[in-house]
């Protein structure tokens, strides 16, 4: 009998990359359903195009470049889905496909594939589309299919949105496909934390920072109302729970994750208050992505058996 001699450990847990990715897909379903329910079948079409393009682009790139096909890890599926959720349902489908292919090929595979990229692929693609087609990406079909300003536009104009806070929390408002309902996104986030796919540190630090800053530097008559409108509008929930927690592009240390979340929160508020566009989440997270490795490096866990600072 030929016995294998290999390093310990000789057993492994049954965690798989694909399991983690499918959990993320599952956790995004409530937000997607709200999007389709509120915005109509066009939202579903955008999502399908984005996902199919992402998967096809990964397959094609790997075939052409003679690399191992990595579709089984399901990460292309997640990227395609996430990109779609950041887009308005009215985005032209060819534009969706272009963005999705950009996310997979330019923002992920050209960096070396899963785990190697510096920028969140879905957000990099959204930023790419924003630069090329700003008009298409900021035109939102409303609940009654009329082209309307989103609550966030109103906030920039310092006029109260048309919707109540409860409507925004539930998703009964215009916006990108996956950004409508804070409730649906929070449910998905709770599932991911429960399944230990993500830690609560980044989303909590991110959302908490935005909450504190908008409360303290309120621009509305009612600071609390202003804060809640800020939190439930735009991409903060989707960004904090699903984008800022992207494994490849966020820190792994506990302290690093908290700092990363705080950084995202500060930048988001700055961009919203002073930026060119009403939304700041995309650029806030992309900028923090740049700092991920440095944050990890300077926030090592306290070494076992030593006091803070590594002294024995």
């Amino acid at each position: 009998m030929k016995l294998t001699v290999a390093s310990s450990p000789h057993i492994r847990g049954d965690f798989r990359t694909s399991r983690l990715m499918l959990d993320v897909v599952l956790s995004l379903m409530p937000a997607l359903f709200v999007g389709i329910f509120v915005l109509g079948p066009q939202a579903a079409l955008v999502t399908v195009v984005s996902v199919v393009t992402a998967v096809a682009a990964e397959w094609l790139y790997e075939i052409v470049m003679k690399k191992r096909v990595t579709l089984k890890d399901c990460s292309a599926l997640v990227t395609g889905l996430l990109l779609a959720l950041t887009l308005p349902a009215t985005t032209p489908l060819w534009m969706v496909a272009l963005g999705s292919a950009f996310a997979i090929v330019v923002a992920k595979l050209m960096w070396g594939g899963l785990g190697q990229n510096v920028f969140n692929p879905a957000l990099a693609a959204r930023a790419f589309l924003m630069v090329l087609f700003p008009a298409a990406l900021t035109r939102y079909a409303g609940v009654d299919a009329a082209t309307g300003a989103t609550p966030l536009h109103h906030l920039v104009m310092l006029t109260p949105p048309d919707q109540s806070i409860l409507d925004m929390f539930l998703g009964n408002c215009p916006g990108s496909i996956g950004e409508l309902s804070a409730l649906a996104l929070l449910l998905g986030g709770a599932y991911l934390v429960f399944r230990k796919v993500i830690s609560i540190r980044i989303p909590a630090a991110y959302i908490g920072t935005v909450a504190v800053l908008t409360l303290v530097f309120s621009k509305g008559d009612n600071a609390l109302e202003w804060m809640l409108y800020q939190l439930f509008s735009g991409g903060i929930m989707l960004g904090a729970i699903f984008m800022a927690t992207d494994y490849a592009t966020s820190p792994v240390t506990s302290l690093g994750q908290i700092l990363f979340g705080i950084g995202c929160g500060i930048l988001t508020v700055i961009f919203r208050y002073y930026g060119l566009f009403p939304e700041g989440v995309t650029y806030a997270i992309l900028l923090m992505n740049l700092l991920t490795w440095a944050i990890d490096r300077y926030t090592p866990p306290r070494r076992f058996g030593t006091k803070k600072g590594g002294k024995a």
Partner: peptide, 25 residues
């Protein structure tokens, strides 16, 4: 039974950091 993969890939998920009893990375 050992569940090794032919093509190991680091996702940077950080789970290894969380389980390390010596608090390494």
């Amino acid at each position: 039974q050992n569940g090794a993969a032919e093509n190991p890939v680091c996702l940077r998920c950080g789970k290894c950091v969380g389980v390390c009893p010596m608090r390494l990375q």
